[in-house]
Amino acid sequence: MSSHILLVEDDERIRTSMRLALEDEGYELSEAGSGEEALELASQAATGQPFELLIIDIMLPGMDGFACCRELRRQSAVPIIMVTARTDTHDVVAGLEAGADDYVTKPFEPKELAARIRALLRRARATDGSAASLTFGELEILPEAGVVRLAGDEVHLTRTEFLLLCELAANAGKVLSREQLLERVWSYDYFGDGRLVDVHVRRLRTKVEPDPANPRHVLTVRGLGYKLAP
């Protein structure tokens, strides 16, 4: 069964060529020319066959990619890949903070994008939780069920945030470097963008830490990486 992907891009030629290339990779694509259209399509699809992944260009007329991404995140944890025209800190970090799971920079090879899509979808389907339940103080993780509770209340995490937390939890007390996290959560090689980890850790903290400025669970180990306090 092919995955259903929504492509949000205002340039019709890019949209068409990308659809052709991604269909060659075996995906089923829908297109949206604007953020507003994308939100409408997403909410329509939610009742029937929801999209499994979204590709959103940042530069859109009207509602831009960041806003579109933030809006989608309110309703869904669907994996999102941002398409940026720049690799500057501002665009990449803003995109990730708006809720994107990963990004690609124009011009990209369709194979590169396909690899990112595969990595996200594989993770999205993976349910490799071994333990039934992990507890760290007030924080409770149920890897199998995909549920995280803080002081008894369920916390809504995106799949990437959830996987990141599970990876840290599976190695609780041990430091994981950014490279290790990039490889295990995003399937990147050694030269993946460390900002992906940093921004996701930041986002994770706002959800699972009672006081995100003074984290008690997800800790930074200077010069080495991150760890989950046992």
Partner: peptide, 9 residues
């Protein structure tokens, strides 16, 4: 981007 995608097709 269009060129690269079309080329791969």
């Amino acid at each position: 981007t269009t060129l690269a995608a079309s080329l791969s097709v």
